[in-house]
Simulated scan of single mutants.
Amino acid sequence: MSGRIPAIACIGVIGRHNNPLHISLFPPEERAPLEFQFLLSSCLDIFEARLPHKTADQDFGLLQAVDERLAMYGWLTNTGVKFVIVVDMEGRPSNPLDNKGSTAIGLRDSDLKPAFRALQTAYIMLLRNPFYNPDEHSPVTANAEQRFGSTQITSRNFIKEVKRIGDAWAPGVVNI
């Protein structure tokens, strides 16, 4: 594991009714989509269990460590939408030009706050789009899939921004 730094493996946006709105994998060709769908679903109970004890802070921190390699972190918006970031602790090779050494780096809860803030900003920009209706992506809406085709977010700008966030994040980055 020497010479490698943590990287984002998956970003999931989960609706207020626990329906997946968007899932991005990093890098997509090396990840199994079904595995990460199950991982994202497995953290929903943790959100529910911690919800009564949360105050104004939206950062749920470490939700669960899946194994020695993958860890899941969560963030809850005011509208009940959940952001989940799965971090691969052996994510990508470190830059040999950095003088930070080649030892494994651990994560602090604060390391992911810039990524969550950037995700929240991207989601707010999506909501500000007059052509986006969040209720179209809710499974509670009667026959949503028949009327609208999908409960997934299909905005190219949002998807591109999520990809940018996933690619740009690294431990210690303060602004994304």
Rank of each mutant, 00 (worst) to 15 (best):
A118H: 13
K100Y: 06
P134G: 07
Q37L: 15
N133S: 08
L63P: 07
V86L: 01
L63Q: 00
W75H: 06
E48H: 15
V66A: 10
P96G: 04
A144Y: 08
G101V: 08
L70Y: 14
D67R: 13
A104Q: 11
D109F: 13
V84C: 07
Q64G: 01
D59M: 06
I46K: 06
A71Q: 09
G80R: 00
E90G: 03
S42K: 01
P139R: 12
L39Q: 11
S150F: 05
T103F: 06
S138Q: 07
T79N: 12
D111V: 09
T151E: 02
Q58M: 07
K82Y: 07
L76V: 01
G74S: 02
D57P: 01
L119A: 11
L51P: 07
V86I: 08
L97D: 02
D67I: 13
D67E: 15
R156T: 10
G80W: 01
P114Y: 06
T103S: 12
R117N: 15
A56P: 00
V162E: 03
D45I: 09
Q152V: 02
A49E: 15
I165P: 11
P130A: 10
R69D: 08
L107M: 13
M89P: 04
S150W: 05
A56M: 01
P134Y: 04
H137A: 12
I165T: 14
L70C: 10
G74K: 02
I165Y: 09
G74M: 02
R164Q: 07
A118N: 14
A49N: 14
V162A: 11
D109C: 12
H53S: 11
